[in-house]
Design a protein around this nucleic acid. Structure first.
Lengths: 311, 311
DNA sequence: TCGAGCATGAAGCCCAGCTTAACGCCGTAT
DNA sequence: ATACGGCGTTAAGCTGGGCTTCATGCTCGA
């Protein structure tokens, strides 16, 4: 394999027509250029230039090498340009993942803003459950993932000020939104009688001890339901598992049971479903997961996401 | 424009999956590789690798650069290979030029041999008169030219042993053949009576003082005719100029005049044309003209040409 | 005949880029 | 738990490739 630097010197010489001209063009002395060409000729064991009284003319081997050198030089400049495009967000790729309700309610707006700002960046979005996401980000299969976990307790803005932080797994976590979870019931469910008639009245988890549950089939949600009920001192009766909120809505309206429905999904509930806050309060903490050194595109999308979260 | 050497180091790293592996592959220490990658990252102001616990993984910019690096590396090896093909005569080009009668009689056999020996070399042949040829060879437009000049006198093997020589113009001249010139006359031309009846009888130039000449229109031949006659003490009467020997033959047979016809062209004369040697003897000295540093293909063709000349 | 412009060679210098050595980090095996 | 091996990184120092400078030879045009 040839030394690319010498090849580029040869290219300059032949394009310029003389070693001296190439030297001034390259910022060298003619002697340096002459030496470079000479060693290249030694390497390929063939003369590459015929020395003329005014300047030089390429031999057949010289012309051949120059053609290749042109390609090489073109690639080198193209490579630099394209990397510049990448860092300037004029090009590139951003692979997103989110869970279903975030993909439907949280991301479209952010994606719209991002696309308007950086039309050159190719976006992709796939639906992934929170449990799959960290490994994919760590392995570089994803650039940014929207995930969540459950939080019992206040769920106020305690994490708002904390900003991005690197978790134990070497990933950056950025808080986006606290998604309050409701319980969704059929209109005349017994638990409603204990709670009161106002929509703002909360339903105590313990009053759902005998309810039949329609459960989101995502792993995190399944576990959370069991945990919540355990904290209230009972084991839930699971009547149904589904990952589709419209179907959940239909099942509730048919009186099959009750379900946990976060704010981000309430728009998928039918009109006859009754929604109430839970006591103790239950919150889905929605976060963005990103690599510790995010790409420019990842950082830009994070910026969009955090700037759009409600005050 | 990026530094191609660093780019190739990056390529090795990403292909190997770790800096250490790339280092052993390149014959460097891991430290050297790390430093190269680090400076490349500084140059493009972007991380190119994400450092993992076991090895590294390319970032988007890194993958982009590797694609270009692959092309560059491919070109560098291809370039070396193709130059090797050129010097080994597995490829390349040989641009020949010759005057008409050499092209017809001298070259076809040599070209056949050459093609059989070096089928990868592309050959081209154009017809050129001797006066045009030196500049074209000097400028690199031709690789090898067959030319001639006239020689009065013995024309024996005096130049045979001398071999190739560099003439005053910086071109290499290789003697190929001495082409003896005949005079071609109509069957009952008066000059034949002075000479004798035997085909080996020579015709003295002075006996052609009153002849009408059909002259080859090439510049060298035209001048030579005048010079030869001047040496014999007269100026030739030129009746016709032609560069086509069959036509010359027809004109002679029609009794228009006489002509100079070298051995290489006698096969183009009609049966009724009478051919005799001249006194003083006139010889076309046929030579090959080549650049002072001939390409391998040129040298090979010269070898074929000289090895085929009659002993 | 001279001088301008070209390529080249010898000599020397300097820094890019290598090696060595030491360190921190992670994951695994003992 | 602790040790160990493999990873990448850093600092320091050395070496040689590749540059400059200077001098020479060549060709061409004035």
């Amino acid at each position: 394999m040839l030394d690319p630097r010498r090849l580029l010197v040869l290219r300059a010489v032949i394009r310029a027509g003389s070693m001296s001209a190439a030297a001034t063009e390259l910022g060298y002395t003619p002697s340096a250029v002459s030496q470079q060409v000479a060693t290249l000729e030694r390497e390929v064991r063939t003369p590459l230039l015929v020395r003329h009284s005014r300047g030089v003319v390429p031999t057949e081997a010289g012309s051949l090498l120059v053609e290749h050198a042109d390609v090489v030089a073109g690639r080198l400049t193209r490579a630099a340009d394209e990397v510049a495009d990448l860092t300037a967000l004029r090009a590139g790729r951003l692979r997103l993942a989110a869970f279903a309700s975030a993909g439907a309610r949280l991301l479209p707006g952010a994606i719209g803003v991002f696309r308007r700002r950086h039309p050159g960046v190719r976006l992709s979005l796939e639906l992934r459950e929170p449990e799959d996401v960290p490994d994919l980000v760590r392995e570089g299969e994803l650039d940014l993932a929207i995930t969540f976990d459950y939080l019992t307790g206040p769920g106020d803005g305690s994490a708002v000020a904390s900003g991005p932080s690197v978790d134990t797994e070497g990933l950056t976590t950025t808080w986006l939104l606290d998604d309050v979870v409701n319980v969704a019931l059929p209109p005349h469910h017994p638990a409603l009688e204990d709670a009161g008639v106002s929509p703002t009245d909360e339903i105590d988890v313990s009053t759902l001890r005998d309810a039949a549950w329609i459960r989101d089939s995502g792993q995190v949600c399944r576990e959370q339901l069991v945990e919540m009920c355990a904290a209230a001192g009972f084991t839930p009766h699971v009547a149904f598992d589904s990952d589709d909120f419209p179907m959940v809505s239909g099942l509730i309206e048919s009186g099959v049971g009750v379900a946990l429905v976060p704010d981000l999904a309430v728009h998928q509930m039918g009109r006859r479903v009754v929604l109430r806050r839970l006591r103790p309060r239950l919150v889905r903490r929605i976060r963005a997961l990103s690599p510790p050194q995010p790409s420019p595109a990842t950082a830009a999308m994070l910026e969009v996401l955090t700037s759009r979260r409600p005050a």
